[in-house]
Design a protein around this nucleic acid. Structure first.
Length: 271
DNA sequence: CTGGATTGC
DNA sequence: GCAATCCAG
């Protein structure tokens, strides 16, 4: 081969090699489908052990979280997902538009119900918890994953709790999360579809690492608060009484009973 | 990070 | 309906 062809050829080969180097060396975890499969939620263990009961019968399993939709309230009564260290990512994606969830038989609410309502479209499964792929990130922008939240509640105490959950996911090598609004009583509604505005939101976090289960739960008013979220810690039993949802029916009774009575803030980093 | 409104095509 | 721009906690 003539020398004058060799240099261009080398340049092309090096360029191609660099282009694929992330895949070869496996450094770009988030963008390689092979790795992606290992961090999807809805694992069998998750389904078998941690999905709550549905009071509506409208459970929808998405690729990266599972929800139970309440058509009456035009939002999910719970959203459940697993948050592993591998899910945490520094990826930055542009926020897409909220769209209806076609997997919900009755269709989820249109985003316009929230427009000029005075309430935010608050994520239940946070977008920042699903940043390991653009598909996972975009999935959180289905309106079945959205509930009306006060802006200062959402960006304040609720946001601080969500950040703490990500910290716990790292610390405990993964946690299970169930979250939603309390859809009981006469609730204010917004929009043409009458989307209910919850007065309180709950979040339940379970650490099942090392075979020892521990849980913590919070019930926080949908309004601004400068209090530490630890002030709003409750037992899972209390949230079950408020919502009518049975949260961990598939766990062995002894574990379920123990978890649901627990209010052990020391074990979750409160002073 | 959590979200918003307005303008223009 | 979507992009660009500017905004707040």
């Amino acid at each position: 081969m003539n020398r004058k062809y060799i240099y261009p050829l080398v340049i092309i080969l090096v360029t191609v090699a660099l282009y694929y180097s992330d895949d070869f060396f496996g450094e770009n975890d988030a963008s390689t489908p092979k790795v992606l499969n290992t961090i999807e939620t809805n694992s069998k263990e998750f389904d078998d052990s941690f999905l709550p009961t549905s009071t509506t019968g409208a459970v929808v399993k998405h690729n990266f979280f599972t929800l139970s939709y309440s058509e009456e309230n035009e939002q999910a009564e719970w959203v459940a997902y697993e948050l592993k260290p591998a899910h945490l990512s520094k990826n930055e994606f542009e926020r897409p538009y909220f769209i209806e969830d076609n997997s919900v038989k009755t269709k989820s609410a249109d985003w316009r119900n929230y427009k000029n309502s005075g309430f935010n479209r608050g994520h239940l499964c946070p977008a920042a918890d699903r940043k390991f792929s653009v598909e996972a990130f975009n999935e959180t922008f289905l309106t079945s994953n959205i509930s009306p939240q006060d802006h200062d509640f959402n960006s304040g105490i609720w946001n601080r709790l969500e950040q703490k959950v990500r910290f716990w996911a790292e610390k405990y090598n993964g946690v299970y999360v169930v979250t939603g609004g309390v859809l009981k009583g006469n609730l204010k509604t917004i929009g043409e579809e009458n989307v209910s505005v919850p007065n309180e939101f709950y979040k339940i976090i379970v650490d099942a690492s090392d075979g020892n289960y521990k849980a913590v739960a919070f019930l926080i008013p949908n309004k601004p608060s400068s209090e530490p979220f630890y002030e709003y810690a409750v037992s899972i039993d209390e949230i079950e009484e408020k919502t009518g949802i049975d949260f961990f029916p598939n766990l062995p009774d002894s574990i379920e009973n123990s978890l649901e009575k627990m209010v052990n803030l020391q074990a979750w980093g409160s002073r």
